[in-house]
């Protein structure tokens, strides 16, 4: 562990970009935790007499077609967008690791069957599959979480399966088996902790993608309900105004989205460097 921390310190020092990522993440989590307190206006309050004002001292990011403050909405939206991404990734990580590790360890028919299902899932156009799932499950935040988790699942299953297969005949596993440990115990105590690092790296790389996916779903009108502030919806609502030059409606939430994804991707890279220094790219 100490070694890892040392690597972490080294990676951060050697790579100022990772430091920047940490700063961005701090900003995001700050907005997510304290967003409603930080927002200068009620993100839902409409004021049609102030509609479509460009950015000004009073409204830093301007106002939208109903006179709502874009800055407040962008800040408040952080919590929901991050929550969706974390929930989806955690869900696919947990389920994917369990299924992948089990099939990788036991092999046999279940392994083959799961492999087939994964093949089928991967053959779908993933974003459209997510659309269809949200449509089928009903427009709600939980549907977006589930859909995002499901389309990510194959990657975790494959990774966990490969990592487990690689280790299941290693000395310490064999030793545990000879020592009388049951399969479940072996999986839980010996295998899962060892396959966790690559999975966590995968998850961190996946977070940004999950944010994009959720926002994309909202952008096409599936998912989060109006008037809840959410970046994807805000970009979508502003899209019709861009052609007439009202850029602030969609550019600011779009920027927030980019910053979030960017920060998560940098975080993922940094984590990978720490966990597996050889794969630095």
């Amino acid at each position: 562990m100490r070694e890892r921390l040392a690597t972490a310190a080294y990676v951060l020092r050697a790579n100022p970009v990772s430091l920047a990522a940490l700063a961005l993440l701090a900003l995001l989590f700050g907005a997510a935790l304290f967003g409603p307190a930080l927002a200068p206006y009620d993100p839902l309050a409409t004021n049609t007499s102030l509609a479509l004002r460009p950015p000004s001292a009073a409204h830093w990011f301007g106002t939208d077609q109903l006179g709502r403050d874009v800055f407040s909405r962008v800040v408040v939206a952080t919590r929901l967008d991050l929550a969706i991404a974390f929930a989806a990734v955690a869900l696919s990580l947990a389920i994917g690791a369990a299924i992948g590790a089990a099939t990788g360890y036991f092999g046999g028919f279940a392994d083959a069957a799961v492999g087939r299902v994964v093949d089928v899932l991967m053959a779908f156009p993933l974003f459209v599959l997510a659309m269809a799932m949200v449509a089928a499950l009903g427009n709600s935040v939980s549907s977006v979480v589930i859909a995002t988790a499901v389309i990510n699942l194959p990657f975790y299953i494959r990774l966990a399966r490969a990592e487990t297969q690689m280790r299941r005949h290693l000395g310490y596993v064999e030793a545990a088996r000879v020592g009388g440990s049951g399969h479940l115990r072996i999986l839980r105590v010996f295998l899962l902790p060892n396959i966790a690092p690559p999975l966590i790296v995968q998850a961190s790389l996946n977070l940004g993608w999950a944010v994009l996916n959720a926002a994309g779903l909202s952008f096409i009108g599936l998912g989060v309900r109006a008037p809840t502030p959410e970046w994807g919806i805000m970009v979508a609502e502003g899209a019709q105004f861009i052609i007439s030059g009202r850029w602030w409606l969609s550019v600011f939430p779009g920027l927030a989205l980019m910053i979030a994804v960017f920060a998560f991707n940098l975080l993922g890279d940094a984590l990978r460097d720490i966990v597996d220094p050889r794969s630095r790219t």
């Binding site: 970009v17 940004g208 993608w209 994009l212 926002a215 994309g216 952008f219 994807g232 970009v235 979508a236 502003g238 899209a239 861009i242 052609i243 007439s244 030059g245 850029w247 969609s250 550019v251 779009g254 920027l255 989205l257 980019m258 994804v261 960017f262 991707n265 940098l266 890279d269």
Partner: peptide, 26 residues
Amino acid sequence: RLIATAGVSLPTFVTGLLLIYLFYYL
């Protein structure tokens, strides 16, 4: 490295709108 990380961070629908704003409107 920057392009590689920034590129995947751009949601296509935002990039598209930005390009429209820059090259069509402005």
